[in-house]
Design a protein around this nucleic acid. Structure first.
Lengths: 197, 197
DNA sequence: TAATATCTTGAACGATCGTTCAAATCCAGT
DNA sequence: ACTGGATTTGAACGATCGTTCAAGATATTA
């Protein structure tokens, strides 16, 4: 492939991402992938090297899409903090029904894999760290915007948000009580925007 | 087996639990299990029926051990809330190094499995719910003990704790910063014990 | 000790795993 | 239209998957 067959590389990676996201690394077979992305083994191996190689690219694509969404939401809401909140609501609530899995794909990967797939594990950790950095950057923007108390440590807020998202997404898979979850997110962001008067 | 060979049923289930906990359902093969529990296929199938049957028993054993630990910690600390906090510290911090996986085995299962293993998924959800109920019961004890504000809703506290634990355990696998995590747990329990003066 | 009931063994099953590669196909430049 | 390189195909590989079951070993009863 490379130079565009019926579909370009991004379409293929997106389909693979959705399957891996739903079923996990070990739960997805190369034959599952062949069916979904409509490519024969030889082409897949020529383009991605291995099951691990394609998974790694899927992790990267997933993360990149997340960045794009956060950026878009900050723009459409016209505010860093509102954008961030919309992003969390989307990830925690909306994705339970519409996404391949209610889980964050990176958290799911970190939960699933062991040192037997050290490189993929490291990649997932690294990407999650980058997301945390972008949360921190968003909090700093929000502070400049006057939405968040400037006394607060953006890094600490980002870490805390990361933990909340992971917890909420897992919990929502167990007990999908939309109303209660929505309230918890509201409370969480009220705490973030607790500007000293 | 059943009537005790070289090892009794509980020893076998414990070994299986630790392997499943580390590698997950799909990441564990029956041959991995055969090696670890030192039983031949025929005996395993006679005793547990299938890979799924043994996994289900592992989930139950894991949960039962958790209940036992919480009960023990409440007893040794002489306080419901202190026992609960010790339990969380153990689960979030200590288990990162000593346990088969830093993750909660139930959360890991819920993250990994799909409707292809509906029965196991339902079992994991049900067991997590039972744990939440026991958290709620502990908060009620703590209220009677004067450790927690009686105005607060024990069910809501339990839900919130469940979410925090899931988030913290996943996060700690990514970024094992013991000091910061310890502080977050302290802060969390300070909020729980925020009795009106 | 012989007969019987119970449990354990491990070879073997068909299915599926991740991966390879020679052959077929496609496409660009002449 | 022809050629040569790039791409795609799909049969096939050895390994491993979850599972079965006849045969052997062990424990129990008479």
């Amino acid at each position: 492939m490379a130079k565009a067959g019926k579909q370009n590389r991004q379409d293929v990676v997106e389909k693979a991402t959705n399957l891996y996201w739903e079923k996990g690394f070990h739960g997805t077979s190369m034959r599952n992938l062949q069916d979904v992305i409509d490519m024969r083994p030889g082409s897949i191996y020529a383009a991605f090297g291995s099951k691990e190689g394609l998974f790694k690219e899927a992790l990267q694509y997933y993360t990149q899409q997340g960045f794009a969404q956060l950026t878009a939401l900050k723009s459409t809401t016209g505010s860093p903090l509102k954008g961030l909140k919309a992003f969390v609501e989307m990830a925690v609530i909306d994705s339970q029904d519409s996404a391949p899995s209610g889980m964050c794909m990176l958290a799911k990967t970190i939960s699933e894999l062991t040192e037997e797939n050290a490189e993929l594990l490291a990649e997932a950790k690294s990407l999650l760290h980058k997301i945390e950095l972008s949360f921190a950057a968003t909090f700093i923007e929000a502070q400049a915007f006057g939405e968040v108390d400037k006394e607060k440590d953006a890094k600490q807020l980002a870490r805390s948000l990361q933990i909340q998202i992971m917890g909420l997404r897992t919990y929502t898979r167990v007990n999908n009580d939309n109303k209660a979850i929505k309230e918890m997110i509201d409370t969480l962001f009220l705490a973030f925007s607790d500007v000293k008067k």
